[in-house]
Design a protein around this nucleic acid. Sequence first.
DNA 1: CAATCGGAATAGACCGGTCGGTCTAATCGA
DNA 2: TCGATTAGACCGACCGGTCTATTCCGATTG
Lengths: 224, 224
Amino acid sequence: MPTEEKTRPDADAASRMHATKQRLIGAGLQMLLKHGYNDTGIQALLAATGTPKGSFYHHFRDKEDFALQVLDNYMAAVHDALDACLQDASRPPLARVRDFFETTQRSYREEGYMGCLIGGLGQELSGISDVFRSKIAECFAAIAERIAGCLEEARERGEIAGDCDPRAMADLLVDCWEGAALRSRLERRPDALNTMLDFYMGAVAAKGEVATSTEAVAPTMGRR
Amino acid sequence: MPTEEKTRPDADAASRMHATKQRLIGAGLQMLLKHGYNDTGIQALLAATGTPKGSFYHHFRDKEDFALQVLDNYMAAVHDALDACLQDASRPPLARVRDFFETTQRSYREEGYMGCLIGGLGQELSGISDVFRSKIAECFAAIAERIAGCLEEARERGEIAGDCDPRAMADLLVDCWEGAALRSRLERRPDALNTMLDFYMGAVAAKGEVATSTEAVAPTMGRR
DNA sequence: CAATCGGAATAGACCGGTCGGTCTAATCGA
DNA sequence: TCGATTAGACCGACCGGTCTATTCCGATTG
């Protein structure tokens, strides 16, 4: 493993985690995705997993600590997906970025189009908890940072305009994705996600220039 | 007033509304924006407005009914802003659309960058309540519908590509806006909103063609 | 190898507080 | 006078969290 990040939570930590704790975090992800934070009850979580209360408060300080750990777990999975998609040097950078979001979209479908946990908790809690607000802002920043790296590559290769700011474009992409994810949650279908991706890819792709890539990046645009 | 819509809730209804009910809805908007639905307590609302419980349950069936009415009120304000911004036939259609979102952004600032109530409630409740889910989907659809009308005008005038689907582009704009609104809520600043607007306007504007408009639509792009 | 020790983990009764909602009575205003 | 509205005591349910008791299981012994 290359020394790519200073301190990213071990993606492999799950394997060393106690089975009960893993069960709680797994079920917690589903419940937090569907119900949000305030409507997720500890009792309901324990009932759903057949866990006694003592175990929960042995593994977690309190509900907030629990949700933060679920979020860490979620972020680890996101970073795994980023690793899997963005590091394939044989593909054009822009196609790799698109691949990441298509992978993400697939995971949304598997969860019944409940959208993104980060966005969900961010929307619900950023008004009342600075802990969550800053944590979630950091999550988005971390994702955007990695995408920005890939966009920088794309810029150097002439896939996107040479005078654009990759980091700003990455932030923008993440933001728009979250909006489309909310819409897909409301509609229980992925259309908004696809439309958004097509639009973005079509808009950033440097047109009529060298564009060495033969891989199609934005098949259609502006049509649902 | 022109017969523009079949049945849109009377924007002027507030003036005929009982003072107590108005107070509750006004305070409810602030509380729902900041705390979300589940963390907004009836008791806290009553304490904040100095209202006895009897009054609340006289004017509202229950908490859900209350939140839906706050949402109706919010939507009426949105439609007012749409009226004010989109109907000025003397300005280019695309500039009118941009004007609406800049007006919206101003109102976000006034509320301390708490983002959009529709998006907030949508994110929090769409997983557990079909009432809210469909209601909020309709809210977005209604907004997109009106923007689509303006985009259609823009298309006819050649401000945007002739072969694009105005309705899809309007949905997309609303979705991306919501995503940027979440980011602006997390960061307590409007940057993400501006970046998103600039990017969208720059991307849809038909380039190098007739483009009769002399009004700048997207001053900068891709820079924060 | 068996006995045992001790912390980790499980188990669930229990607690005070707050939740949304109900009910009856008093008061207001046309 | 009479319905609309205000007033607030009251309710059962459930919330997150605490506490003590028990069980589990690997390390430490003789």
